[in-house]
Amino acid sequence: MPVIWLKLVQQLVKALNSDGTPGQVAAGIALGAALGLTPLANLHNLLVLAAIMLLNVSVPGAMLGWVLFTPVGFALDPLFDSVGRWLLLDLEALRPLWEEVANTPVIALANLNNTIVLGSLIVWLLMFAPIYLLARYGVVQYRSRVYQRLRQTRAFQAIQASKLYNLYRLFRPE
């Protein structure tokens, strides 16, 4: 457990203090939330992962979003299940769409006919903008109020000097 907390702090520090703009960090967090909110081993998360790597967003921000939203995902599974059931079983009008999805090559592999996968994916898409806006506001507030004092601490300097930081620089927002 201590390792997990250490990682969490490390991600938090990196994400919030990276050279990226608050918007880039917030976009990273919003994209990373998909990895935490939806069941991980699914096709859509491969696309999310590619987006995190290719788009000019904060990778530590995405990792932070993943770590932060994983417990939320577990807690909200009953809600995702209800949303998924409603969409897949109750909404007759969507039946042709699901038939098409279930019988289309590759798309069928995305498991969108599972109530948890579909429910969590839809909730994440709906929450994307609010997560982004909240995260950006939080980063702006943090940088203007806390960051200047934090960068003087030894812990922060130790993280900056670590090898991991060098790896991170590869994906640093430009």
Partner: peptide, 19 residues
């Protein structure tokens, strides 16, 4: 449509619906 229990995983299995 036919329902069955979703795949075994750490997260809830949910229902998988076949069309």
């Amino acid at each position: 449509p036919r329902t069955r229990v979703g795949p075994k995983r750490l997260r809830a299995a949910g229902l998988t619906v076949e069309f």
